[in-house]
Design a binder for these strands. Structure first.
Length: 607
RNA sequence: UGCCCGAUGGUGUAACGGUAGCACAGCAGACUCUGGAUCUGUUUGUCAUGGUUCAAAUCCAUGUCGGGCAGCCA
């Protein structure tokens, strides 16, 4: 018996290099040698788990890094201490590493743990630059490397803010949150300048220092850029750069009580890390002028990063916003962020989806600026294609129906040979015990078969996979009239290699030997929502699929006793499964990743 | 009714002024000791109207429709 693990190194069909409008831009920059090296980054905020939409972004950013000989930094965009947590930085780090493993892990830019930035001179100007360490090229164990954190740059970002004040393009504003809103105006009406806008540089400097020193309560003052309150672009109407927040930060602790806003921190973090291409989603398009404005206002000696935007992923039959996913978790509607029904990376992983399948999916859907909804069938196709290549075939019965082979001697046991994966000869073979009493799938017998049904029926014949052709002689029912047992006779010469092995019968079904079968808790997952666009109308939770999880006690062939985590098993004719983290020796728990394509179900549906 | 962005079969994408192609889905068939896989065939499309051009999905104009932007969130 041979069980070749089907790890992430299983061969994949080579796909042509992807192409899209962002890669076109990068390729042009490479050919004109605009940068010494292409440098992207993946900058999640650690306020939730990564989902398949992030996977799209990860594949883009790391894909560009690997295709153009560059690096992609993993960076925690952690400028809002009230929403963030180390639980999320840990899960994010793990998910990213898992997704890029065997593909772009040699492109992963990290930094030595605890390393701090120091001022240096570049072209005669002071500069802050934090080059990446590649995790797999580093001689140190990877535990000495960690992701980048925007919060590691708070001191530098503060210095840059001071510079803006000195240039008189930033000021401390005393307006309340409500007044700030009112003064901002609306998209079709210009805003109004704050009465504090004309403070002297000295006063601004003094006030900003005192903000940093904790002299003012939350919300009392902000630092604002001095732009144009009449700009048609809301984000150019004196955007807030810093706010006061007296709260503990998961990474910097109690060191700061003022925190930079996204717009201020992000472009500077990109610059500090030497990012060349800062790729984000479409909603940041209107922020780009601000991104450029900030960087251009400072005397920065190195090339400036540029922002490019693409459409985020929307996928049918699920929700993608972190807020909604958080709601599902907190309200106990799923078992956690890694519930196998969740579109999170950890959920998909627990479900049995491989990094390869997710990367194939990202490749297939492409990168554009068009906001569409991707058919979940594309994801399902990518999962099936990948799992078909690597899944170890096993026989298991989800809803058992007892079958007695009346002409097979009681007590006799045969060891039949079965192939582990017809797609992969290297996967080897295993032995399957056969005996007089078996279980077959309840669905594989119909007393009154519908048209075109070619499984077992009274008086009919069917082949037991790897074993004999059997004929149904008798149907035994319980008091309620339910079929509880079948009495069959086998064509004892029809076994593989036997004299009548070549006999054609229309149907082949799976089975397990009753005496040898092992029990498993099998979790059958389905789509989390019943409609393609759960958040199109009303409360998305009203569209939750009540049948998204069904648990059955399955009868499995004995070799499944040795099932390993992170390995894909195909229960023949049924679906792909993987061990759940709740599984333990003696108590198998398996998750259904996805069903096999079922043309019969479709045929039956038509009637 | 301000500004920005977008629009190619049912869905997602390609074509970079020169034959509208690919994938998924669908449909039909072949093959099969998985109604799996594989293979073959096939239905369906350039938002509209003008303009530029020998030639427009592509460039221009106008319109229509869709998305984004008014957090001291990211």
């Amino acid at each position: 018996m041979e069980n070749k693990p089907s790890g992430p190194e299983a061969p994949a069909a080579p796909a042509p290099a992807p192409s899209d409008f962002i890669r076109d831009i990068v390729a042009a920059h490479v050919s004109e040698k605009k940068y010494p090296q292409i440098h992207t980054r993946f900058p999640p905020e650690p306020n939730g788990y990564l989902h398949i939409g992030h996977a799209k972004s990860i594949c883009l950013n790391f894909g560009i890094a690997r295709e153009f000989g560059g690096v992609c930094n993993l960076r925690m965009d952690d400028t809002n201490p009230t929403k963030e947590d180390v639980e999320y930085v840990d899960s994010i780090t793990e998910d990213v590493k898992w997704l890029i493993s065997g593909w772009a892990d040699d492109r992963l830019g990290l930094k030595p743990k605890g390393m701090t930035l120091e001022a240096q001179q570049v072209n005669g100007k002071p500069d802050f630059y934090l080059p990446p360490k590649l995790s797999t090229l580093s001689p140190q164990p990877s535990t000495s490397l960690e992701p980048f954190y925007a919060s590691d740059y708070f001191s530098q970002i503060y210095e840059y803010a001071v510079q803006l004040i000195r240039k008189d393009v930033a000021y401390v504003d005393d307006l309340s949150a409500e007044d700030t809103d009112t003064y901002r105006g609306s998209p079709d009406h210009p805003g109004k300048e704050s009465p504090f806008r004309t403070r002297s540089i000295e006063e601004n400097l003094d006030l900003f220092t005192r903000m940093k020193n904790g002299e003012f309560p939350d919300g009392a003052r902000t630092l604002r850029a001095k732009l144009d309150m009449a700009s048609p672009n809301i984000w150019m109407r004196d955007p807030i750069l810093y706010r006061i927040r007296h709260s503990e930060h998961h990474h910097t602790g109690g060191q700061w009580c003022i925190y930079p806003m996204y717009d201020f921190a992000h472009c500077l973090s990109d610059y500090i890390e030497g990012i060349t291409h800062s790729i984000c989603t479409l909603e940041f398009e209107v922020h780009r002028p601000l991104y450029d404005w900030i960087l251009q206002r400072l005397d920065l000696p190195r090339p400036l990063p540029h922002q490019y935007e693409f459409a985020r992923l929307s996928l049918g039959y699920t929700v993608m916003s972190k807020r909604k996913l958080m709601q599902l978790v907190q309200e106990g509607l799923v078992s956690g962020w890694d519930d196998p029904r969740m579109p999170t990376i950890s959920g998909l992983r627990r479900r049995g989806v491989t990094p390869q399948a997710l990367r194939d999916f990202a490749y297939n859907i492409g990168i554009t600026k068009y906001n569409g909804i991707t058919d979940v069938a594309v994801l399902e196709y990518c999962i099936r294609e990948d799992l078909n290549r690597r899944g170890l075939r096993r026989l298991a019965v989800l809803r058992p129906l007892k079958v007695v082979i009346t002409n097979y001697p009681a007590g006799q046991v045969e060891e039949l040979e079965a192939v582990n994966n017809p797609e992969d000869p290297n996967a080897g073979k295993r032995k399957l015990p056969f005996s007089r009493e078996l279980f077959i799938e309840h669905d594989d017998f119909k007393e009154v078969p519908p048209p075109k049904y070619f499984r077992l029926r009274p008086g009919g014949e069917v082949r037991l996979k790897y074993a004999y052709i059997i004929k149904c002689d008798e149907v035994i029912k319980d008091a309620a009239g339910q079929v509880v047992e079948l009495r069959c006779t086998a064509d004892l010469d029809s076994k593989t290699g036997g004299t009548t092995a070549g006999r054609k019968v229309k149907g082949t079904i799976h089975w397990v030997s009753a005496a040898h079968a092992i029990e498993a808790e099998v979790r059958l997952y389905d789509r989390l929502f019943t409609v393609a666009e759960p958040d199109a109308t009303g409360d998305f939770k009203q569209h939750l699929n009540p049948h998204s999880l069904e648990v059955v006690a399955a009868k499995c062939e004995p070799s499944l006793q040795d099932a390993q985590p992170e390995i894909c098993y195909q229960f023949e004719r049924l679906a792909y499964f993987t061990l759940d983290k709740n599984s333990a020796p003696g108590k198998l728990v398996l998750n259904r990743t996805i069903t096999l394509k079922d043309n019969w179900a479709r045929e039956a549906q038509k009637r």
